[in-house]
Amino acid sequence: MHRSIIAFTCLAAALLFATPGWVQEKITLKSTSVDLPDPGALFPGPGADAVNSNCLACHSTEMVLTQPAFPKATWEAEVQKMIKVYKAPVDEKDVGAIVDYLVRTKGKS
């Protein structure tokens, strides 16, 4: 088991780099700050209010829009999973409109 982790010096010299000097080079880390792109987009089309107000807190629209068509039962289960497992704060009275939108845009029998 231990053989496949090879000490830095052996691997660098034997396999990857012809330059023996390389092994002296230490890895240094620099503090890093980045900006992540703004997701922005809203769900398109009519009847999107319920998904826009309940389904964008944790992930951007692509989580839903890249999905293929699924039967209504799959979409109902997904919405319930968001509520029960991931604790999505979904307004109970919006569930019907959310499922309607998902079935209309991504539904199949």
Binding site: V34, D35, L36, P37, P39, G40, A41, H59, S60, E62, M63, T66
Partner: peptide
Amino acid sequence: FPQKGTMILQRTR
């Protein structure tokens, strides 16, 4: 995306 070249965007956030 920071420190990233061309990538296929599956989800922004």
